[in-house]
Design a protein around this nucleic acid. Structure first.
Lengths: 224, 224
DNA sequence: GCCTGACAGCTTCCATACAAGGCGGGCAAT
DNA sequence: ATTGCCCGCCTTGTATGGAAGCTGTCAGGC
């Protein structure tokens, strides 16, 4: 059964964008790899035009670097860029958690605890991919509760750099510890304690810094 | 004499992007206006292809809305979008000012007072366009002092919506008041008082809210 | 042996042609 | 008079060919 009100049709260009982005984030296309419109077009059996448009989109998202008349390369990860992306994310998420904890709605705490329960299930099942999804959902839900879901979309865009790092260390991160930190955040929200919520959120996000430094050592070629 | 080390060449697509963005921000192209690739191509005497790529870029920046197989329209200004852009900006700028005031460098205060002096000169000369430039420079300088200039670039991208609003009310805003607020911020930095700096910055940014509501009343057709 | 310059092969960029689909006006049937 | 259909005209999407430019190679001169 096709969707009835589906009037945003899939164009070939969009499919190529999604496919390439997935390849890049999952490190199937590695930082520094050189690709060309013709290559990708041949690989997907389409013409060069949609591929070209996909390149433009991904270049604007900071995943590709188009060198006019020369070639297009998968952008290496900029440690300073990742650091500043983290700064942006922390700025926004701290402001979000302050709002949520400062003016908690009735069901806020319930929604969060439900999500945490799901995360525990995923962790118990050792399903790290599903846990990652639920982790994102946790943070996006906080943005929704603060009434700034669009802000999360922004974070999402500029967090792909960090996602590449994360993928390199998949399985390393301790889901148990993340869950404990989520609980701490949720409790601060339940108690309507913005200061405690802010501290818990900052501690939660700070862990990514270690991950970055470790990854730079393990995969120096992927960084600039 | 051509630039010697110019190896980032201007492509036609880039020129079209710049021209269109300027037209949109200065309201030469009004929210809701319908444009087509062929129109713009004919207007600039180029083919559809570069124009199409420009549309894609501007659509990703939220200035255009491409409706497949129908037409492309200049996006109307979303009040909620502007509100959330402001939220993002406030989150980041508050974090920036905290850092700058928390770990002030020796010359930070000097640089800021110099900038404020320039602003007073521009204000005295009634040069509102120059004042606007100096206003942006003030905030970008704070980002630089905090070591997160890239973050300001992000704000810059997502603040075009607000710039359109600002252009509608050009000359209305009181430069004197803005300068006074800048002074307050600079003083808090000089005293290394993060809390006071945060309050001053929040107050400074809050003024934009009034501007928005007033503008919605004056130009309801430009908003969705 | 070393330097220089032409050149072949690659890239992205632009122009053009065609395909697919939405929209509205005119027309016919009820 | 109203409703429903059909057909041009418009739009964006895709394909393809050629133009401009960068890079590395290789032959020729010193």
């Amino acid at each position: 059964m096709a969707a009835l009100l589906e009037h945003t049709q899939e164009t070939i260009a969009m499919r190529v964008v999604d496919a390439l982005r997935d390849d890049i984030i999952t490190m199937s296309l590695k930082p520094g790899d050189v690709i060309s419109e013709s290559d990708i077009a041949a690989r997907y059996g389409v013409s060069r035009q949609p591929v070209r448009e996909a390149f433009i989109r991904l270049a604007q998202q900071g995943l590709l670097l188009i060198r006019p008349k020369r070639a297009t390369v998968v952008k290496k990860i900029s440690p300073d860029g990742v650091r500043q992306s983290r700064f942006i994310r922390e700025s926004i998420e701290v402001e979000i958690i302050r709002r949520v904890a400062g003016q908690p709605t009735d069901d806020a705490a319930d929604v969060l605890t439900t999500l945490i329960a799901d995360q525990e299930a995923a962790s118990a099942a050792n399903d790290s991919r599903r846990f990652h999804t639920l982790d994102e959902l946790f943070h996006r839900t906080l943005a929704r509760l603060a009434g700034v879901e669009y802000a999360w979309q922004l974070i999402d865009d500029h967090k792909m750099q960090l996602d590449r790092v994360r993928y390199l260390t998949l399985g390393v991160s301790s889901t148990q510890r993340a869950i404990a930190e989520h609980k701490e955040i949720a409790q601060a929200v339940a108690k309507a304690d913005p200061a405690a919520a802010e501290l818990a959120m900052r501690a939660h996000l700070a862990r990514a810094e270690l991950l970055l430094n470790q990854t730079i050592n393990d995969f120096p070629d992927f960084f600039e």
